[in-house]
Amino acid sequence: MGTTNMSKSLVYLKRYWILYAMLLLPMAFFIIFRYIPMGYIQIAFKNYSIVQSPWQMEWAANHGFEYFIKAFSNRDFLYALRNTLLLNFLDLLIGFPAPVILAILLNELAFKRFKKFTQTVVYMPHFLSWVIIAGMALQLFAPTNGLINIMLNKMGFASIPFLNEPAYWVVTYVLLGIWQSCGWNTIIYLAAIAGINPELYEASAVDGASRLRKIWHITLPGIRPTIIVLLILSLGHILGSDFERPYALRNTLVTEVSDVISIFVYNNGIRGLQFSLTTAVGLFQSVVGVIFLFTANALAKKSGERGIW
């Protein structure tokens, strides 16, 4: 019996060895660039020294939690934490439903050529860097020479400080984020809609269902598992923060709402050389993200959904 299984395994490996050989490169990538660097997490609990390895560094005070205490005693970090949560929550609240709505609208278009053209146009901003988008935003929303404010002034209205006042900046930040990512995320929902059995729509049409009824009772339930999975993944990044987007759009007038955790890490870690402090901040972000991820997945399973594992 053992010899038979061994011969079957050898035959299997001879047939599919190329696939396993192709796995070596991605496995090496993850081991070298993902798992080996995990040893440097301990910098968060030690006094950093450039001439020593993380294993040789001395433990920090307060049982290794000195830099976590310093972070939560730092006013700039607390502001960055507040801004990160606020901006990510608004992105989730306003930005998450946007691609779902857009995908449903595109699916309802009768003209296929117009549908393809619109889909192409709306996902193109995804390929623009935030430096380019920030330059475009400055040309459009600048208080004195921005195109929109020039048009408002010519119509007799006062200029709107899109980029100069915190409240307006937050609105501009969120809307630009939706404009940049909405079309790309729509592709996922369109693929999910394409997997819905068309016979369901035909049967509902025979029963006299309107378009809204079809959307509510067929389309939305059909893509609900996809929505739940993407929502769980989004909640896992609730404390994460991109660097390019807030850094490119910020200015000195709105630092009270634009400085997020990634900018705090840049200022204190790369520029300030406080590597232990910023490693502690990064570890805190990761732990909170994992907690949100597991909690959201557990809630999804309790409500009858599959979750992400």
Rank of each mutant, 00 (worst) to 15 (best):
T144S: 14
A28W: 03
N62C: 09
Y79Q: 14
P54C: 11
D91F: 11
H217T: 13
D76G: 08
T118L: 12
L231V: 02
E256S: 13
S204C: 15
F65Q: 05
T4V: 15
I43W: 10
P37Y: 10
G240W: 10
L86P: 07
K301I: 11
K214E: 13
L176N: 04
H126Q: 00
R82K: 11
S258C: 07
G208I: 05
G177E: 01
F72E: 04
A191S: 15
Q42N: 13
Y266H: 09
Y16M: 06
A103W: 05
V174P: 08
M57R: 01
L102R: 08
L85M: 12
S181Q: 11
G39V: 09
S7W: 14
L212A: 12
N251W: 01
I104V: 14
Q285C: 11
I223Y: 08
F141I: 02
P125I: 00
V265R: 02
A194L: 03
M155T: 09
S303Y: 13
L277I: 00
G195A: 10
S258L: 02
A28N: 06
W216H: 15
Q139K: 09
L163R: 01
V290F: 12
I227A: 04
T255V: 07
Y40N: 15
Q274R: 14
M124P: 00
D207Q: 01
Y247R: 07
Y189N: 05
S276E: 00
I223F: 10
L128E: 03
W309G: 03
G282T: 04
G269N: 07
L239D: 02
S7E: 15
A142E: 13
Y247L: 04
F157L: 11
S262C: 08
I104Q: 04
A298D: 05
P225N: 03
G236I: 03
Y79H: 14
L239P: 00
V131H: 00
L140Y: 09
N74Y: 06
M151D: 06
H237D: 12
M124K: 03
L78W: 13
P161N: 11
T295W: 02
L175K: 02
P143M: 11
V174Q: 02
F127D: 09
I196E: 07
M124N: 08
I223M: 04
A80L: 11
I18F: 15
L109V: 08
I104T: 07
L78C: 12
L273K: 12
A21F: 13
M57A: 07
V260H: 02
A194T: 13
N268R: 07
P221V: 06
A194N: 14
L13F: 14
G272V: 06
L85G: 00
T219M: 06
T278E: 03
R113P: 01
A298R: 12
E199N: 15
W309D: 08
L283F: 15
D91I: 10
L92T: 03
T3I: 15
W309E: 08
D259T: 03
E165G: 00
A60I: 09
I94S: 02
Y123C: 06
L175E: 08
N297T: 03
I238Y: 01
M155S: 13
L19I: 15
L19P: 03
S181E: 10
M151H: 08
F157Y: 10
T144I: 13
L235D: 01
N197A: 04
G135C: 05
L87A: 04
D259C: 07
